[in-house]
Design a protein around this nucleic acid. Structure first.
Lengths: 112, 112
DNA sequence: TTGACAAACCTCGGCCATCTATGTATACTA
DNA sequence: TAGTATACATAGATGGCCGAGGTTTGTCAA
């Protein structure tokens, strides 16, 4: 199913931080991993992700280190910081509240 | 709790059509009703709603009729059309898929 | 060895949804 | 009669995401 992209707005940071809370990852990997875990519902674009990562780094929510892949290419591995963990918790709370209220409105109307 | 407004993007039309699926309503009422039903999580602005309503009307998803309130003021009552009903169903499906995939990513990461 | 393709990073310009600010008019109330 | 709530509306700014393009390095086939 194709989801209206405007629905995605605002959830991207939550998704990225969630991914990083599990393990250290590099950008390109996040894109493929997110697509895989969501059955391609989330097809994050490079033009979207990289600016977000730079922003998260500037805010101190993630840290970066360069590392060579087995083939010799250089990758930038991102790791979530303590501050990032707190930001993630806040984002999760927001998401849950948002989700519940949307459902409340959608369901309350259908009962009328 | 205050929700990042960017999260709202794309859900507004779903919410408006949901409201109208229950009953005929006028713009100002939708704003207050939405705020009430969502515990002020959704505090839709007039500058957001009215253009949306005009757009929905142009697409044939809602119809309008003018009616005087008991006090004499003129209101524009919006009603969902058959086409609007089908659009609502589609939006609901999108929302459910989106919600489930976000939860899937958020939860799968926290297990790692 | 050259050409194509995937991996991996990046930036810029534009679109689009929403908000802020402002404007109008009417009714109620202090 | 001044202020507040109701009820509609639009214009400009903002901000997130995408499309389109670019670069470098490695792999593999022709």
């Amino acid at each position: 199913m194709k989801i209206d992209k405007s629905l995605m707005s605002g959830s991207t940071t939550l998704l990225v931080l969630s991914l990083l809370s599990g393990e250290e990852m590099y950008g390109y990997q996040m894109i493929t991993e997110l697509a895989r875990r969501s059955n391609h519902v989330f097809d994050l674009k490079e033009g979207t992700l990289y600016p977000i990562l730079h922003g998260l780094e500037a805010e101190g929510l993630v840290s970066v280190r360069e590392k060579k892949s087995p083939e010799g290419r250089t990758r930038k591995y991102y790791r979530i910081t303590r501050k990032g963990g707190r930001a993630l918790d806040a984002r999760k709370e927001e998401w849950v509240a948002f989700r519940e209220q949307v459902d409340a409105v959608v369901n309350s109307a259908s009962l009328a």
